Computed example of a mutant assay.
Amino acid sequence: MTPPEFDRRAVLKALTATLTILAAGRFTPAAAAEHTADTAAASASWTVQTLEAFADTLIPGERRHPGDLPIAGAVTGPGAVQAGAVDVLTSPELPLAPLLPAIGALLDTRAAAYALTHLLLLPPTSPAFVGLPFKHRTALVGGLFDPGDLDRQIWQVLSLMVGLAFDTAAHLDTRQALAGHHPGLAWLGFPAPDADGLWRFPQYSYGRALADLHPATTASGSPA
């Protein structure tokens, strides 16, 4: 079952462009942060609810309030949604944003088909994927990454972006994220900058130097 207006070629082109932007470091945290308020205002939309539920399935968190349906509340503590996953996914900086309603509809279609085959009754007042219990969301999402799944690349890139939101606070300036106690950076123990706002790492991450410094290395650390 696939939404009739779903254009895989357009989505795959947008995914490729999105990965290029992320790889090139052209994703601007300041511009993305300005988008946060718009995302919050649109949080009632079915597309955003579905994206939140997808992100929460990958990196679960606790509910923001009673009756918070997109977040299943499978764990305590903040997860991907609180870390800004939807802000990253819906950022106007990325070419994927206009296609998210179609991707959300595709995920809901897959959820409806899953519910039908597993004899699950879904509530009519929320998106199909949001209506799935957490264990069934997890089972469905796990199947989306099967090698033979036609839309596997879509879910892979969405998952990468969810991970970037939690692990790197990609939509925020790092200093801003640390000051705001970003849950992903806090969970990773990301260090605060020095007093001048710069990061320096005087200790080797492995506790020892892995190689001697080449004698031709310049003062900036570049090879001659």
Rank of each mutant, 00 (worst) to 15 (best):
I21F: 10
G148L: 11
A41I: 05
T217P: 08
A41C: 04
Y114W: 12
T18Q: 04
P124S: 10
H118I: 00
A83G: 03
V81D: 08
A53Q: 09
A30E: 15
H65P: 01
P183D: 10
P78H: 13
T90I: 12
T125E: 14
H181P: 03
G163D: 02
M1Y: 03
Q203W: 06
P133L: 00
R200N: 08
D167N: 14
A53V: 06
T28Y: 04
G180L: 12
L116A: 15
R137G: 01
A219V: 12
P127Q: 12
F145P: 12
G61Q: 04
G189S: 07
A85R: 07
F134C: 01
D173P: 10
P70D: 03
L160E: 08
L119R: 10
P29T: 14
V130Q: 03
A30D: 13
L22G: 09
W155Y: 15
P4C: 01
P78T: 10
D173F: 09
G180Y: 06
L89N: 13
A186S: 14
R152H: 10
L172Q: 15
L89R: 13
A31Y: 08
L107S: 11
G221N: 08
I103T: 05
I154F: 11
Y114I: 02
P215I: 00
G148T: 15
T20C: 01
L210V: 06
P4A: 01
G184A: 08
D212Q: 09
D87I: 03
T47V: 07
L107H: 13
A115C: 08
A32Q: 07
H118W: 09
G184H: 05
A192M: 11
R208A: 15
L185H: 05
I21Y: 08
Y204T: 14
S43P: 02
M161W: 04
Q82Y: 09
V130N: 03
L185Y: 09
F166A: 06
T138M: 02
T218S: 11
G84R: 03
D173E: 14
A219W: 00
L116D: 14
A97R: 13
L158D: 11
G61S: 07
T218V: 02
A17N: 07
A10H: 02
E52I: 04
P147D: 14
F145G: 12
H182W: 11
L164Q: 14
G180R: 08
M161H: 06
G79V: 07
G73Q: 07
L121C: 09
P4Q: 05
P127E: 10
P70F: 06
S45F: 00
S91V: 13
G77W: 03
V11W: 05
D56H: 05
D68R: 13
A42W: 00
A40E: 12
L107K: 13
T16L: 06
L160I: 15
M1A: 09
A186K: 15
D38G: 05
T50R: 05
A179W: 11
G67I: 10
A14M: 12
E93Y: 03
R208F: 14
S91L: 00
L19A: 11
A31K: 09
F6G: 03
K135C: 04
V157P: 11
E62W: 00
S126P: 00
G79K: 11
A169N: 09
P202W: 04
G84S: 08
H65F: 15
P193H: 00
A219C: 05
S91P: 14
L94N: 07
R8L: 15
F134P: 04
A80V: 07
G104E: 02
A165I: 00
W46A: 15
A83E: 04
E52P: 08
D108T: 05
D146K: 13
P183E: 10
